[in-house]
Amino acid sequence: MGTGNPIIQVEQLTKHYGQSVGIDQINFEVKGGEIFGFLGPNGAGKTTTIRLLLDLLRPSSGKIYLFQKPLQLNSLEIRQRCGYLPGDFSVIDNLTAEEFLTFASQLRGQPKISFEKLSARLSLQGELSRKIRHLSQGTRQKIGIIQAFLHQPELVILDEPTIGLDPLIKEEFYNFLQEYRQQGKTIFLSSHNLPEVERVCDRVAIIRKGKLVASESLENLKKNRFRRLSLTLKHPVDQLQLTGGQLISHKGLQVELLVKGEILPLLRELANLPLEDFTFPEPSLEEIFLYYYRENQDD
């Protein structure tokens, strides 16, 4: 399956759990050779979508094609070509890491796959012979990553892959993802971590309350990105008028602003204020989604 061909096609996909809606009529397409970010807060429908893509859940309506084939009719063949790291990665505790990885490769009918290279890259070499129950969460996560990439799948589905990883290993993992993409492989990365998605993805879909609120390139996402600015003043100011940002709150010496696009005009205005301190806290995902949601409503 070549680069640029659709690898995942989701059409009007809906999943109900009794009366409640897991996801509602979502559509998206992931092309070969790209890293596709699937962004959303907890409970938004990310994991439901992934489980539908793996044929673990059955859709209430809608269609899923992987490698341009209907999923349910070709489930085994498709899963042979996919790797998967669950968000809540769990393995049998009384196996060693090596035993588990051997088991995973045997399940794929490829018992002689070597995992030395990737385990060395993730600094896991000394841990392979230890029982999984004795390993830290981060080390377990590395084992999960290795089992997902073990058989060099054409499509890898990763659900919150960097939970528990230390910053250095995270960075190494991001580099590995880029290299993997360059081999023409496709990665579907679900996350609630915006900087992570910004760091590695080519395109992004944003899901909120089971609905897809945006699906766009990372460039567009960044262009539309907003920041939150927290100011601490030296003394109270009666009338605060700033044209470079939208005032969210002003309580005593604390001021909260929302800034979209260029930051420089606002910084010039701030120079005239009795400023004690200022920070750019990372906006929460919910804020981003509220922003997108509002934008969509405005549209």
Binding site: R51, L54, L56, S75, L76, E77, R79, Q80, C82, Y84, P86, D88, F89, S90, V91, I92, A104, L107, R108, G109
Partner: peptide
Amino acid sequence: EKGLLELLLSHPLG
């Protein structure tokens, strides 16, 4: 409950 079933059946195991 532990998520292992999900992992097992994401492999090509009918």
